[in-house]
Amino acid sequence: MDYTLIAPYLPDLLSGFWITVQLSVLTLVLATPIATAIALGRDLGPRPLARALAVLVNAVRLLPALIVLYFVFYGGPQLGLRMKPMTAATIGLVAMGAAYMSEDIRGGFSALDRGQLAACRALGLPFGHALRRVLLPQALPLIVPPYMTRAIIMVKGTSLASMVSVADLTAEATRASSITYQPYVFVLLAGVLYLALSGVLVAFQAWVERHLRLRYRLAR
């Protein structure tokens, strides 16, 4: 095993890793509010909206992520939507992520007692206030574990972007492997970097759960 092989490819691998980090952050940051809106729309919105959202979520949820990415990247231009690989990958991943995460968030909200919202409304509290002060604090401890699991899956799922010519970590590691015929080295290195990235999320989850426990310790 020749580990000195890594050196010439290290800049490319690190730039691939940086793309992966960007793609991960972008996906999570964009998908989370969309997912929250979908969850609330399905739970509390007027029936036609709730139905439309359910159809949309299932359509995206039931498709393989790669097909969704192919559809955006290759199908888009046919419809006159030409975009950079990174943009196409982000759109596809956000669509997938939002669909899945909306289910995780909806699960947390539907576990809440309906009377909580009724009480807020009866007191004249605006919905945004009720959400922020009453509903979310109670739903969050239920949402965090499935949501964070999903976030980790989404981060790993960004490797699919390599299939639509995004030069992410997976793409760079594969490229180096096929030039050097040393997949062991490069795939191992890519694995370690993915592990580091997901590890950050696991640490974040532990921190959030601890924080929520302390804050609402007396509440349950």
Binding site: A118, A119, L123, G124, L125, P137, Q138, A219
Partner: peptide
Amino acid sequence: RRQRAEIGMVFQHFNLFPHFTVLQNLIE
């Protein structure tokens, strides 16, 4: 909402906010 604030309502299952203290429930 403004009209509703003039009408108090008490529910069968209390519907207190479980993560608030008694005082916070009242002053929110």
